[in-house]
Amino acid sequence: MSKKFWSLFMFSFIMLSGCSLLSDTDPEFSREKYDDWYEQEQYELALEEVNQRLEKYPEDPLLHNEKGYVLNLMGQHEEALQPLDQAIELDDQMDSAFNNKALSLNELGDYEQAIVAAQKAIDISDKEPEQFINMGNAHSLLERDEKALEYYNKALEIDDSAPNALYGKGISLYFLAEYEKGIPYLERYIKAYPEDIDGLWYLVYSHDLLEEYSDTIPYLDKIIELESEQPLDALDYKGLMLTYAGNFKEAEEVYNNIIEQYPNEALGYYGKSIALVQQGEVDQGLEELDKSIELNDTFKDTAYNDPLFSPIYEDETFIELTEY
């Protein structure tokens, strides 16, 4: 599974704090007003407001930082760089502007420059977790998982419940094959973001790799609920995990559900065939395997090499179905 840090994290990674060193600041600036717009996802209103304020106070670094923040929330990461650079030019001690720039650069895939910006933020202030999270993200996306882990740990030393540091540490440990150590951090993250599908999948894969197959089921059920319109992958995975756990009848029910929803998908018939064979219902299992191969003949090779079919490797019908 690839690493992904997406727009959901912006709310924690972007900083708005930081005081201007200049006197030309907007006396009517309202943090609460902007926060209300962000909570309601009214980004256009916030952008319009900040542009109007900048016409009156063009030398206010906080307003330029705010504009960069709004543009990041809107997914306009390239456009966000200009106001953030302007904020830094006006106030080179504004850690939040450097941190927001690091986020923009991470989103644009310029991870090395994101590291430079995040380090500037850390040098100015090492009292907030966000700088360390953005630094960790850049290293993680460069596949420097041990280095990334150092920064996530620093973020958690500042705030031991920072959701995105928990997520970052969890997947760093996952990619370092420290699955058992990573699971508690991913679980704590999911408590904060219970509908985050990628986080749920990391928990599924972690338990699977630890051969804790039954432990994957609650997370797969949640993914199926969230992906109610297209749950095929999660349903198939659930059937497989139930099979590995020895719950063959439950696995059969899952695959019957897949067949009902996706009658032209070979996966459902293939999974059902395994569940039936494992229950000793060989003839019925072979009938389902035949259906899967008719829909997708690549399942010949899949079945031939699948250890779950080992009880019938010598069965003549199985041999006929899987030979070319």
Results as ranks from 00 to 15, higher is better:
L156T: 03
I158S: 02
Q93R: 13
D208I: 05
A118N: 06
D233N: 08
G168P: 06
K272Q: 08
Y174R: 08
D35P: 00
E260W: 00
Y174A: 06
Y213F: 14
Q52C: 01
I115S: 01
Y237K: 13
E78T: 13
A148C: 09
I158V: 15
S104T: 09
Y262P: 00
S172L: 13
A117R: 08
D283W: 08
I190W: 05
E187I: 07
W6L: 10
N257M: 02
Y193W: 04
W6M: 07
D283P: 02
Y43I: 03
Q93S: 13
E253H: 02
M241R: 12
Y189F: 15
T322N: 02
K33G: 01
S161D: 12
A245D: 12
G285T: 13
E59I: 00
K147R: 14
N257Y: 07
E212Y: 13
G285I: 13
K291P: 00
L22C: 09
H139R: 15
S161T: 12
P184R: 11
E316K: 14
Y43P: 01
I190L: 09
K4Y: 12
G239V: 05
D297T: 09
L149F: 11
I171N: 11
D215L: 09
E146N: 15
L45D: 02
K3M: 14
N106A: 05
Y313W: 15
D159L: 06
Q42I: 01
P231N: 00
V204E: 02
V282W: 09
E281Y: 10
P263Q: 04
A87C: 07
P311Y: 14
E252V: 02
Y255K: 01
A138E: 02
L8Y: 10
Q113I: 04
K67P: 03
T317W: 13
E150W: 11
Y111L: 14
E55Y: 11
A114I: 06
S214H: 00
D198Q: 12
L232Y: 10
E323W: 08
M15I: 05
E288R: 05
A102Y: 08
Y167I: 11
E130T: 12
S161R: 11
Y193V: 05
T216M: 03
L8M: 10
A251T: 07
C19I: 12
L84I: 13
A303T: 12
E89H: 13
Y255H: 10
Q230P: 00
L149P: 01
F98I: 02
N100H: 11
E225T: 12
M241T: 04
L235R: 03
A266I: 07
N164V: 10
Y167G: 08
E187T: 15
I124P: 01
L156V: 08
K154T: 04
E130M: 11
N137W: 12
P163S: 10
A177Y: 15
N153M: 13
G168F: 10
L149M: 14
D35T: 00
Y324M: 05
E288W: 03
I158C: 08
L276T: 08
